[in-house]
Each structure stands twice: as structure tokens, then as C-alpha cells.
Design a protein around this nucleic acid. Sequence first.
DNA 1: AGCTATTTGTTCAGTGGTTGAATTATTTGG
DNA 2: CCAAATAATTCAACCACTGAACAAATAGCT
Lengths: 418, 418
Amino acid sequence: MWQCQGVTRPAPVSGAVRQGSLRELNLAVVLGRIAAAHRPPSRADVAASTGLTRATVSAVVDDLIAGRLVAESEPAPRTGAGRPARGLVLTGSGPAGLGLEINVDYLSACVVDLAGRVRHHTVRRADLRPVSPADALARLVALAAAARVDAEQQGLTLAGVALAVPGLVCDAGLVRLAPNLGWRDVAVPELLAGHPPLVKPVPGVPPLVVDNEANLAAVGELHADPAGPASFLHISGEVGIGAGIVLDGALFRGVRGWSGEIGHIPVQPQGRPCRCGGRGCLEQYAGQEAVLAAAGLDRADLPADTAAARLANLAAAEHPAALAALAEAGQALGVAVASVVNLLDLDTVVLGGGYARLTPWLRPAVLAEVSRRVLTAGWAPVTVRPAVLGPEAAVVGAAGSVVRRIVADPVSWLTRPG
Amino acid sequence: MWQCQGVTRPAPVSGAVRQGSLRELNLAVVLGRIAAAHRPPSRADVAASTGLTRATVSAVVDDLIAGRLVAESEPAPRTGAGRPARGLVLTGSGPAGLGLEINVDYLSACVVDLAGRVRHHTVRRADLRPVSPADALARLVALAAAARVDAEQQGLTLAGVALAVPGLVCDAGLVRLAPNLGWRDVAVPELLAGHPPLVKPVPGVPPLVVDNEANLAAVGELHADPAGPASFLHISGEVGIGAGIVLDGALFRGVRGWSGEIGHIPVQPQGRPCRCGGRGCLEQYAGQEAVLAAAGLDRADLPADTAAARLANLAAAEHPAALAALAEAGQALGVAVASVVNLLDLDTVVLGGGYARLTPWLRPAVLAEVSRRVLTAGWAPVTVRPAVLGPEAAVVGAAGSVVRRIVADPVSWLTRPG
DNA sequence: AGCTATTTGTTCAGTGGTTGAATTATTTGG
DNA sequence: CCAAATAATTCAACCACTGAACAAATAGCT
């Protein structure tokens, strides 16, 4: 019932194209074009951009409309002579994704429809470190139930759930380690087994996906900015520092789904000891607690985004200690980013989470280190920019990952029973 | 004529499946299965492993045999009752790839057939630093012409050329920078324009590809060991240190094809200055010159592999300075590898080039740093092993990349004119 | 030998889905 | 009001895969 798997790991398909796969593939292609278009495209537009004939596109679109994934938008923008086109849009009343997030100081739920619009969003602040995993998940289920009611009142059907956690997740939804939450080997599906399922399971679609918060935040950022680059590094600066790597429009998860552990890249190999056992890890220089301490602030029980806000205010007021702390953090971040750029040849780094609003003060030091240490920086400038989604990137990305899976493989939704 | 492009960057295809693409895709699928099989598979084996019907596989195989890409291998291994199967193999007398390499102290040419066998291999030692790029390429063309004659005498037809250079290559075959060769902004296709073309151009296939040596070496290693992992980091330790990143069986090239610049990952941010402008780069601690100096050896004009051999001999004889130098290099390498593993979650690191035969002395320090600095090392052990191909990995990989492209897209070969 | 079981590979009518051209629908511009 | 232009649909044709039946070739058994 609560079976799990990774978010964007493609199934190791044989690749053979059978008779029927032809239509399946073209359903996905056409739906993907409609999703990716800036304005509602006509059937003719889709035909031109895919290379399929208009006849085929019409037939495929008919299937998609019958399956309530696509709708015609009446007022299509006119241009010149000829019969007016009818615009195609992803329906706002079909399947939707439920995103959930557990973090150190809040729980959150969010519903995103096929078109990527956020249709519901709740955040409940609470310090979850003293709460047992079972209790935390129980509270989350309550939030999720409310979200479901709201979604259904808007005519949406939940098609799947994705849960973001700040830790390492195994394939079966097992949270190996969430250090800042104090979790170790928490089997989420088992703990949820006592609760009623949140979605009617769709064959071929995992009803629950558990994934790392930084990964899902990167996915959220990817879809929040369709005009943005197809490859970038998204760094979430919270108590820990995580990163999501997006390559060619897809999240790169690594062999076991544990990619992006940027927080423990050594930036000062003989430097401060880290609780991971190494020395001089990035987190010791650019993590929230290190920055607050360097700025002379009480590393109080401020929620994460409040801490970032306070730092931003101080920096805007040119508070010397805050400026120095951010410069030092930016320098450490730059060393790590230089490693990443040297290794992966990315041209865009997105600062997310708590870093988003600190970007103006972090960017100069990051760029300085990058241009010093990256051999190719002269020909290939690196862009460092703040995330367009703030700290809610992970929940939004989680919910979005569910609907994205439907867009990428509409057949499993179209052929669902009932 | 000499138009260029990257090796494995997939064309941004719309993905739409037209009527004819169906056959095209299945030609590639079936050919890929035959290439990947350990023993010559029967048509029935291919049908079972792809999910296609035997009838379809038979039809597709007929096309491939007619196009001289596949042949039947008569003595198929028997097993139990039933009509004996006829084995399918990639033909050894069809298209072949020509691989070329320019390095600091040698030129090399190599021909690989469809099945991946090396059918021709020449190495010409010469110090190329004082030689102009045009002269170096002229010498290489002579080597290539001889390789072509040999290949054609064996019944092979060259289908494309790939050139490996130790530097940064742009899309159009422009070598931006090859520091150890002294090259800067060398337009290879222009310099080759005066020479007769080495291959009869096949429409849709670039006749010449120029790529980084470390990238091609990783590709060579990938195909040299079909049973090996699908994702790994291949590190070539020469005068410079380069890496090739293989993810899910494909080379990852980065946004501009400049991925894998591991030599300038900072391992000691306030350490020795590097000629790249940074400080404490890996190359300053684990590059050939640094290791030789630390071992107290004259960093003489020994060719690269001789230097590695001498170090290996000294280490095997437990020469103290050599052991200490290798331990230090291994430690620095380990810091960089830890960054990579934290970032990409890879489980295999292959030491290639000069490092290959030094693996026994480098591995302990690398593994020690990895297990200290990689959070997930406890659950996911990292394997460090020597490359099966030695320093010739890059040429072999270059030649192999040409035939791999035919296996992945046989139609452009089958429909070639003439 | 002869028979059966078994597996491989081919043949062939059937079918699903795309194709391309013709047709209809709906607008702008002269 | 008609011609030009563009959008969408219809429909016969066609291509490639499918499934079942069949032919081929062998091992094992009596």
C-alpha cells in the first residue's frame, strides 16, 4: 500500500518499441509539449514542434482530453488570417500531487495540479526534534488529510504523495539518517501502515515516494522557472547544507540516491572537526550555526528562515560581524562550488533555502573563489542566483514530482481502473 | 568535411515516435542486445530479453545482416533438446572506428571493429611540446593513413574518427587549452583541411570528433569491462590529472563538455600555489611531477608511463621516499575523491593512466580519506580499483566511441549512400 | 529406427497507429 | 462577397509489430 521508490530514477526499460508503445510514447510526447509550452499551443503547433502529423496529434489529443488530462482553452491568442486555433492546456481539475515535508522546525503540506499551480499550502511550525518519528508522521497525516479535503473540493484527485525529509533515504522509503531531526533507520511506510491511505493507488504508480529534501527542492526550482537552465546545482542552506544536482532537466540521484551531500565536502582539510568524523567540512564554515556564531548571534531556537532573515537585516544595515560572517561563509561555499563546477562543468548555481535571501552577500565571495579556482571560468562564466522558491521549494517540488510523473507517463493514469 | 561535435551528447530530439522511427528504434535495440550479450545470442534470446516477438526480431535481424552489421556465428553452444540456435555476432568485417591521440610524449592511432576488438594499434613516441600543432597533426595524419590501409586490408571500412587531446575542447573541435602540450585555441578541423579526408563521410555522422583524453579514456574503460559498473569515476593520472565521469553507462560531459577537471579541485585551500591561479589544487599534490619530486626522483624527461613504472618498482622495493610520496598523493587524491563521492554518490573509482599500476600504494590512503569524509561510506562501500586498460585507454576509447555511435544508431550507417 | 518432446526460426493474415491528401471549418483582407 | 490563409478532421493506404500456426532440427526415450 505504501510502497516506495525514488523520484526520477528511470526504470531500466529494455527500450524495445512494441506496437502499442507507439501510442504510449506519443501520448507522453504530446502531453509534455503542452506542459512545456509558454502559451497554450494549438494542435498545429504541437504537430510542428514534434514532427508528428496534425492527424496524429489530433488523435492523441482526443485521448488526452477524454482522459481529463488536457482541456481546450477558449480564448486562444489570435494572429493573422485563418481559422482560429484552439489552445490546449493541462487541466486544472484532474490529477494532482500531494507534497509533504518534515523538517526540524515545521511540517508542511502542499497540493500542486497538473499545470504546476500550487492549489493548497499549509505550514505548521513546531520543533520536531523531541517528537518521535511515529508522532511526527501522525501529525503530518492530519495535515495531509486536510489538504486532501481541500483538493477534492476543488475538483482535484490526488494521484500520489511525495515526502521530503532532511536526510538520507533508501529505496524502500527507509530514512537511514536524518541527523538534524535525530532520526535513524526510520521505516516511513511501516509507520504509516496504521493510517488510512491518502490516495487511491494507481497501478504502476508508487503511492508514496520518500526523498531527500534537497533533491526535491532542486526539482521544485527546476519547474518553478521553466525558462531557467536545464542543468544547475541547487544548494539548500539550512542547519545542514544539501544540494540537488539537475542535469539536462532531470534530477541526478546517484547510484543509491544519495547524491548532493555537499555539506561534507572538505573545504579546509585540516580544519575544524565535524560531527561526520571528517575535518573542515563545508558545514562547519557555511552551515547556519557556524554563520550565526561567527556573526556573534545567539544561535537561539529561531526557526531557520527567521535566522536567515535576521542575518539579512543585519547585513543590510552593514553590521560588521554579520558581513564578515557572510563573507567567510561565501568563501567556504565558493571553494565547494569550485569543486563542483570543475567536476561537472555546470554554469548555474542556485542558492536556496536560507541562502536565498542572503545571496547578495554570499555571491561575491562565491564568484571570487570560482573564478580563481575554475580553469574554465574565463570562457564559461558561472551564474550564482537566488532561488525563486524560498524555503517551500522542497514541498512544492515534492508535490510537483508527482504530477510530473503523470505528465511523463500518462498511460498509467489514463488506464487506471475506476 | 571535418565538422565536429561532442561524443555522447544526445541530440535534443523531440522524442516523437513516427511510423518509421519504430523500425529505427528496434534496429538499435536489437543491435544493442547483440553487442551487450556475453555469448552470441539467438534470435529467440533477443526476443525474450527485449520483449519483442520472434517474428519481429527475425525481420530486424534480417535487415542487420543485409546491412553487414551482424553475422551468424555457426558453432552456437548447444543446450538441451530442440532445434539448434544460430548465434548472432557483430560482424568483424564491417564498419570500424579510427581512434587518434595526441599527448605530450607520443602519438597514437588505433582501429576498433564493431565488436570492440582492437584490430590495429600504433604508438609513436616523440616529445611534442616543441612541435607546432600543424606539424603534430600532420604526423598524426600519416599514422592515421597507415592505420586506414591496414584496416582496409582486413576488410574493414572506417566510419569515423575520434581524436583525444589532453585539454579542453569546444564543440566545433576547437582546442581551447592544452596546457601540457602548450596549445591554445587550436582549431583542429581547420588544420586538417589541407589533408585528404580519412573517412568517406556518412550522412548524419560527424566524420571527426575531438574530445578530451580523460573523457575518452573513461569511455574506453567502460567498454573494456562490460561486466563492470554502469557508473564510475575514472581518474587519469598523468602530468595533469583528468577524470571522466560515467553515469548509467554514458559519459557525462557537462554543459560545455568540460566536466572532470578534477586536477584543480582544492585539496588544501591555502596550500601550494598552482599555475591555474588557485591554491592547493590536487595536481600540486598528486600530479606526476609532484609525486616524482616528493619521491626525490629527478623529474626527468622520462615518458609518463616510464615514470609510473619507476615509481612502482621503487615502491615494490619498499623505497621509503617513494612510499611516502605515494601515501601523500593518495591522501590528496582521497580528499578529492571524497568530494566527488559526496556529491555524486558513486560507488566505484577507477585509477587509470599512470595511476593504474600504482593502485596498490595509492588505494589505502584514498580509502582512508573516503571512509573518514563520506557520510554514507558506512552503508555504501566505495571500490577503488586499477583500470584494465593502461595508458592506451584514451585511443581505444576514441576508436570505440565511433563504433558505439553506429551501434546506438545503426540507421545512419545502413542508409549511407554507395 | 522411430516416436515424442522441445526449441528455433519463418510465414502469413490481422491489427494498431501513423501518414498524406483531400475536405471542412473559420477567420482576415481586399 | 470572394480569395487567401490557417486550423482541424476525415479516410483510405501503408508500415511494422503481433500471434498463431508451421516447418526445421535436435535430444531423449523406447
